[in-house]
Amino acid sequence: MPARDSQATKARILEAAVTEFAEHGLAGGRIERIAREAGSNVRMIYAYFDNKDGLFDAALTSAIQSMAAKVAPRPEDLPGWAGDLFDYHRAEPAALRINMWAQLERPEAASEPLESYLAKTTALAGADAAPLTAVDLLVFIYAVSQAWYLTPVGLLKADGANPDDPRRIAAHREAVVAAVTRIARPVT
């Protein structure tokens, strides 16, 4: 019988948990579905994560850390970074979705680890965006890069256009990049 790879099992559980919780939230997420999707069992989930809240917190952290690794801040190109964040949320919405569920159902776990925020604000500290602080700038960039995905579909359709039209999405991405360009390099 082959040896069990606990790290691989834990990684599969986390991947399945991110998907489940992003789709259904903490209250709607089911440990049994996560175990089945991960090719594991409920007992192993509780052995690794103690309880459902622990698994949710680990899945949230995993999703956010994955996003941070794939789309790290680029102080030398804040507009490009904002565009990349916009693209990331379109391609991989799980981090945004699970974070929104956390805001609603488990606010004490809803923020990135403080170290992550400190690293990002430190990276942006030298960015030319007076009078904004690095924190203000980070909040603004996240807000504009996520806005399209957090806007009610009815509002996105209010002008009669299809919000999923690739030209419309490209135009919104351009607007995100332009907004960050203006605020990161204010006209003096």
Rank of each mutant, 00 (worst) to 15 (best):
A68M: 01
Q103T: 06
P73K: 09
A91K: 13
E108D: 14
E105R: 06
T121F: 05
S66P: 01
Y88D: 07
A130N: 14
G80R: 10
L114Y: 10
L114Q: 13
P131T: 14
V139H: 05
A125Y: 00
A94L: 03
P79L: 05
E76A: 15
P79F: 02
Y142D: 04
P93Y: 07
A68T: 02
L138V: 06
Y142H: 08
R97E: 03
R97L: 09
A119T: 14
R90V: 08
L96P: 00
I141C: 15
S66D: 13
Q65E: 15
G83V: 06
R74I: 09
P152D: 14
D128H: 10
L104V: 13
T122L: 14
P75E: 07
T133D: 06
E108K: 11
V71R: 01
A91V: 08
Y149E: 08
G80P: 07
P75T: 11
P113N: 07
S116P: 00
Q146S: 15
E76N: 07
T133V: 08
Q65P: 00
R97Y: 01
D87A: 14
Q65W: 08
T122R: 13
S66I: 09
R106P: 02
I141P: 05
I141S: 07
I141T: 11
W101K: 01
A68V: 01
